[in-house]
Amino acid sequence: MKPTVVLASILKPVDDVRLYQKIGQSLANQYPDTDFHFIGFASQTPSFSKSTNVYFHPLYAFKRLSSQRLFAGIRFFRKLWRLQPQIVVVATFELLLPVYFYRWFRKVRIVYDVQENYYRNIRYTQVFPTLLRRLLANNVRLIERFCHHRITQYLLAEACYYQEMPFMQHKATIVANKVKRFAISPQPSIPGRLVYSGTISKDYGVFRAIHWAAQLHQKHSEISLVIIGFCPNVQDWQQLQLWLEKHSFIQLIGGQKIVPHQEILKALQQAQFALLPYQVNKSVAGRIPTKFYECAALQTPMLVQTNPAWQSFIEKYPAGTFIDFDDATNTSQIWENIQQNTYYQQTPTDEDIFWESEEKKLLATWKKLI
C-alpha cells in the first residue's frame, strides 16, 4: 500500500492556492510514490491534476458562518478513517480535534499549516458580535493548545505568527506565502483602473476603498474601480449592492462565488494601481499580505494603508505609495502626485517574492517527518 497524505481545510477549495498549488504540488512532485488527498470546498473550476498521485475530495459546501460547519469535523473523521493516512496536514483549527481523536485509533503525524492567527482574527475584527469575540477567540486558542502535544510540526504562513503564538515555536517552520510562478499573458495596465482584490469585506477595507475611489472619481472621470473576489458576509454583501447601484464606475467580479486565482492575477495586471486598504489592527498589522508578492511579481504599483510593518517591503523597490484611506479630502492631490512617481526602479528578486525559496524550507522540514 502506497504512503498516504491528507491535506485539508474547511474554508478553502480543494485546489486552494497555498495548500494545493504551493504546498501540495511541491510535495506531490517530490514524492511521486506517495498519494496526496486534498479535502475542502468544491472548486469553482473543475479540479484535476496532471499528477497521478493527487486526488480531490470536495466535502463541504456551506457559508462561512453556517451551522453546517459544526458537523464538518464528523465528515472529515469519516474520510480519514477510509483513507488511512500516515500524515495529515490541516489548515483550519476545527479540523485539529477530529485528527486528534483519529490518532487514538491509528498512528498518524499531524501537521498544522497556520495560515491565519484565528484567535486574533476573531478577537480584533467585526465578523462576530462584540460580546462573543473574546469567548470564541479563547475557544480557538484552547483547541490549539489542547492538540499541541499531538502536533508534530507547524508550518507558519507569516513570520509574525512565531511571536504571536510562542507555544508553537519549538515545532515551527516559517513557510511564507510567497507567490508561485504563474503563466499569464502580458497585458498593459489600463489608465485610471483601480483594483481591489481578494476577500470582499469591511474588515479588509473594501468600503474605505470604494469611498476613496468615489471621491477621486468626482474630479477624475477616467477613474474606474474593479472589485474582484468573494464576499463571505451577508451584511457586507448587502451594503456592497447599495454602492454598486449608486456608482456605475464600479465593476464587481465574483461576489457570491469564489473567483479563480488566474482571473484575480489578470485583473491585478490590468490595474494602474492595486488598492490595499486594510483595517490595520492586531489581526493584520504584522502580516505581509500575499497580494504584496503578487503585485510585486506583476510589477503592479500599490496604494497601501499606512502601516510601519509594511514600510520596508513597499519602499524597497518601490512597490507603491502609502496613503490614509480614511482621509478622502485630498484624493485629487494624491492622484496627481502618484502619477509622477516611478515604481519598481529595482526589480524584485526571486528570493524576495517567489515560492521556490519557501519550497526548499518545506521540503527540508518534510524530509524530517517521513
Rank of each mutant, 00 (worst) to 15 (best):
V6G: 05
V6Y: 01
L11N: 15
D15P: 05
V17I: 14
L19Y: 09
I23T: 11
Q25P: 00
S26Y: 01
S26N: 09
L27F: 06
A28R: 06
T34E: 01
G40D: 06
F41K: 15
F41S: 01
Q44C: 13
T45P: 00
K50C: 09
Y55T: 10
P58L: 09
Y60D: 03
A61K: 15
A61L: 15
K63P: 03
F71L: 12
I74L: 11
R78E: 12
L83T: 08
V88I: 04
V90A: 05
E94G: 03
F101I: 09
R106T: 15
K107L: 13
V108F: 00
I110Q: 03
V111M: 01
Y118R: 01
Y119P: 05
N121V: 08
I122D: 01
Q126M: 08
L135W: 12
L135D: 11
A137R: 03
V140C: 04
R145P: 01
Q153Y: 11
E158W: 08
Y161S: 05
Q163P: 05
E164N: 13
P166T: 12
M168L: 11
H170V: 13
K171S: 07
A172M: 10
V175L: 07
V175R: 06
V179K: 01
R181W: 04
F182A: 14
I184D: 10
I190C: 07
G192A: 04
S197H: 11
G198E: 08
S201K: 09
K202R: 15
Y204A: 13
G205K: 03
G205M: 06
F207P: 08
A209F: 03
A209T: 10
H211T: 12
A213E: 03
H217S: 06
H220L: 12
H220R: 12
H220G: 02
S221Q: 13
S221L: 11
S221N: 15
L225R: 00
L225E: 04
I227S: 01
I228L: 08
C231N: 12
P232G: 08
N233F: 15
Q235Y: 15
W237Y: 14
L240W: 03
W243A: 13
L244S: 07
E245C: 14
K246G: 08
F249S: 06
F249C: 05
L252V: 06
L252Q: 05
G255P: 02
Q256A: 09
V259M: 07
E263R: 06
E263W: 12
I264Q: 06
Q270I: 14
Q272N: 00
N281F: 04
S283K: 09
G286L: 04
T290W: 08
C295W: 04
A297F: 05
M302H: 06
F313W: 02
F313A: 01
I314P: 01
E315T: 03
P318D: 03
T321V: 14
F322K: 04
I323S: 00
D326L: 13
A328Q: 13
T329E: 15
T329A: 14
N330P: 10
I334W: 06
E336I: 14
E336D: 15
Q340M: 11
N341P: 02
N341G: 00
Y344R: 02
T349C: 11
E351I: 14
E351N: 12
I353P: 02
I353F: 04
I353E: 02
F354P: 03
E356H: 11
E356T: 13
E356K: 09
E359M: 06
K367E: 15
